[in-house]
């Protein structure tokens, strides 16, 4: 075989091998797809007995607007008239508007 014949034979071989490999691979995938799939784990159904929810506390009825009372510890001052002022000696310190 000369060089051309050798090259031609190689090319045919490579081409034929490539086609054969592709066909074989596709066939393997198409024919047995389940072989490559992971099995999905199955979760067994469970049931847990939760403790019973306590009933809601009993609430007092909401106050109506009329029954709301605001209490405060602040005592407002009461005002009373001043007693009669005495006569004041001259020189007594005097508070005055400034």
């Amino acid at each position: 075989m000369n060089k051309k014949e050798i090259g031609s034979a190689l090319r045919r071989g490579v081409l034929a091998g490539t086609i054969a490999g592709s066909v074989a691979g596709f066939a393997a995938f198409a024919v047995a797809p389940a072989n490559g799939d992971a099995k999905v784990p199955q979760i067994a159904p469970t049931s847990v007995d939760l403790p019973p929810v306590p009933p809601p506390p009993s609430l007092a009825p909401l106050p109506t607007v009329g029954s709301v009372q605001v209490t405060t510890s602040v005592t407002l001052p009461a005002f009373q008239p001043l007693p009669p002022a005495p006569a004041v000696a001259a020189g007594v310190p005097t508070t005055r508007g400034s």
Binding site: P83, P84, P86, A89, V92
Partner: peptide, 14 residues
């Protein structure tokens, strides 16, 4: 009022 000198007695505050 508690600090006011009552002038009813006609005294003189000095």
């Amino acid at each position: 009022l508690a600090r006011c000198i009552d002038g009813s007695a006609n005294g003189v505050a000095a």
